[in-house]
Nucleic acid binder design. Structure first.
Lengths: 166, 166
DNA sequence: CGCCTTTAGTTATATTATAACGACGGACAG
DNA sequence: CTGTCCGTCGTTATAATATAACTAAAGGCG
């Protein structure tokens, strides 16, 4: 009798995504982390989405690979990916996006805490900025009043260029 | 027979808070809004707290005034106060703080969307900045890529001056 | 007053996130 | 080899935050 095997990432993820996952796996290995099967699937699902995805959206999709996935399954993977800097949490949306720069970032630990996000309120897409001027303005303002910043959340809501022309 | 009356704001709020509430009431009246009893209590509770407060913390305290308060009671008041610009929501904390500047702000609608917040991870206090340099850096960066911003969330986590010296 | 709009009460439920505990598995020292 | 440790995962339950939907009351205004 033929039992139906659950789908693998090969069936669902684009070649581009799988390549990114391979690079992420190497990145983790180089930073004392393991991109396990579950973590890889979660990162893949986030990467394939064109918009931020909520934890329970991820859970729904993850269940097509692992029928017994539960909330802690997803949240544990998300915690790991956040710690590695491979994804970001968008606070205003309570949702997650892949990090556009982490794998290309040459300066250790230098990318995650400086990113800014542009949220289009029409199409819902989020794009990531790395604008030194913003980071500097924040740093300077904090320094001027004796505050020592460790991380800044910058989320800019508005209408993206594409949606303005429609 | 003597029935015990529920406490009024007079019993709980400091004179300074009550004065602020009176000013807020006038502010609302001038902007086609009514600072009703419930809204006034919620704003008072937020104002008295030295730190950001969660919606359910507010609910707990509100119940000492109104025994039948429920989640929608609080969320409706919060929605109103946010719309008036009298409080802010701190996304990273899922909590609310009073607006330090709204009542003193002379330019209509000009204060709310430019504020930045400093969150001390040691003592938990949040202070509000209004630093034109940050707002300008954000505006310029967005403009450069054709994005039209409507609102920017800037939340800076770190250690405040006071906590650094301890 | 009578009408209309805003506000509030009430119940139920949706959405997001974590606690707690046991099991499994690989790495590594002895 | 084998026992131990640590990181990961499965599982169940529950906490914390937020909203839907409907009804009723209260206030402004002709």
């Amino acid at each position: 009798m033929l039992t139906t095997a659950p789908p693998t990432e090969r069936d669902q993820f684009s070649p581009g995504t799988r390549q990114l996952l391979d690079r992420a796996s190497a990145y983790c290995a180089a930073h004392a982390g393991r991109l396990t099967e579950t973590r890889r699937l979660v990162l893949g699902l986030i990467t394939e989405a064109s918009k931020p995805v909520g934890a329970y959206d991820i859970l729904d999709h993850l269940r097509s690979f692992q029928k017994n996935a539960a909330p802690p399954t997803v949240y544990r993977a998300l915690d790991f990916l956040l710690a590695q800097g491979l994804i970001h949490r968008i606070e205003r949306l309570t949702a997650f996006v892949g990090c556009a720069h982490r794998l290309d970032c040459t300066h250790e630990g230098g990318c995650g805490h400086r990113a800014q996000f542009l949220i289009c309120s029409v199409c819902g897409t989020v794009s990531e900025l790395e604008e030194p001027g913003i980071a500097r303005a924040i740093h300077d303002a904090a320094k001027a009043i004796g505050f020592r910043p460790s991380h800044a959340t910058v989320e800019i809501e508005g209408v993206c260029a594409q949606c303005q022309t429609r």
